[in-house]
């Protein structure tokens, strides 16, 4: 089982979390023209990286907050976690 360090609660088992996909995907800006390509990239196209992957998880059975997790997709090693509104350097 993966153990994820929730930035709000501390170290918690994976089964308390729900996966939310690639966190580097940004929604096209509100109230601006969006090209089909931009929308396609936002909704469907994914880099699907092998290696370090920044992703969203929700601590759904804990504090219910969305968080960002940096995890290696080839080893499952979790290196860093962030709050949802934290900028990742």
């Amino acid at each position: 089982m993966l153990y994820i360090k929730c930035p709000h609660c501390g170290m918690r088992p994976q089964i308390e979390f729900s996966y939310g996909g690639d966190a580097s995907v940004k929604r096209p800006e509100l109230n601006k023209d969006v090209s089909d390509q931009d929308w396609d990239d936002f909704v469907y196209n994914r880099k699907s990286l092998r290696g370090k992957h920044l992703e969203l998880w929700q601590h759904i059975s804990g504090c219910r907050q969305w968080i960002k997790v940096e995890r290696d997709t080839s080893t499952h090693e979790i290196s860093r976690t962030f709050k949802a509104d934290e900028e990742v350097a």
Binding site: M1, Q14, G21, D22, L49, T73, S74, H76
Partner: peptide, 11 residues
């Protein structure tokens, strides 16, 4: 979750 690990977890 995204993975290339070719091994899974028990949950």
């Amino acid at each position: 979750y995204n993975s290339y690990a070719q091994r899974g977890n028990l949950p």
